[in-house]
């Protein structure tokens, strides 16, 4: 018999074939299995955006707010200037980035070896932990999330959910099927040298979020 057959036969000897009804219910209705939802994942109203920002900053991200997407080029130019970064940005084809970028040199494509600053759009934010949900694709290539030394992210305030429960529900509703979903909480870090935490291991050294609206 095949490895698959042998393994599943050994499992079935113990499960007796399992409880098909219970399994179908769990898979079909996404029952959380009675797990409690923490209070920090149930924040509503204006406090939700505030908690998202607080938690993201606690995870060493920086956050600024802009009124609308039209304000993005100016806000980005200012951030690049204040961080002493070249006036250049790399993005995917996301419609949010079809803009007049003014003095900032805008290039479109995947991440490269040497990439000072990248910009991608988050599908959702999660106030529970200050986490971004980024979906890969031509609009937002996955390598842009990791190869930029400074990673800028645009997030609509209306896409900030309270916690995992409402984020997964909203995510399913959006009906996307990307190869990769990245949940990102702060910039990359490591404590592997002398157990001293340092930012900027292999991914971005800095993460900045523009909350729109």
């Amino acid at each position: 018999m095949s490895a698959r057959g042998n393994i599943l036969a050994r499992v079935r000897r113990v499960t007796g074939g399992g409880d098909k009804v219970a399994v179908a219910a769990r898979l079909g209705h996404h029952q959380p299995g009675g797990a409690p939802v923490p209070a920090m994942a149930q924040i509503d109203g204006p406090n939700r955006v505030k908690q998202f920002i607080d938690k993201a900053e606690a995870a060493d991200a920086t956050v600024s707010r802009i009124a609308s997407l039209e304000d993005l080029p100016a806000a980005l130019a200012e951030e690049l200037r204040s961080r002493n970064l070249p006036a250049a940005i790399r993005t995917g084809h996301d419609p949010a980035f079809v803009q007049d970028w003014g003095t900032v040199e805008h290039s479109v494509g995947v991440g490269r070896l040497d990439e000072p600053a990248t910009l991608t759009r988050a599908e959702f934010g999660m106030a529970e932990t200050g986490t971004l949900l980024l979906a890969s694709g031509a609009d937002n290539p996955v390598t842009l999330n990791f190869l930029g030394e400074t990673h800028f992210v645009v997030l609509e305030a209306k896409d900030i959910t309270a916690g995992f429960e409402d984020m997964w529900a909203a995510w399913r509703k959006r009906g996307l099927d990307p190869r990769t979903v990245n949940l990102v909480t702060g910039p990359s870090r490591s404590a592997d040298i002398g157990q001293t935490l340092q930012l900027g291991a292999h991914g971005p050294i800095s993460l900045h979020v523009f909350v729109v609206g």
Binding site: S136, T180, L183, T185
Partner: peptide
């Protein structure tokens, strides 16, 4: 593990890159 509320990267991967994906 580390006392973080979330680790920095939690990545969900499904299959190879999609037809229109430029990377992956």
């Amino acid at each position: 593990a580390t006392g973080q509320e979330m680790s920095v990267y939690t990545t969900f991967s499904a299959g190879p890159k999609r037809d229109t994906d430029p990377d992956g």
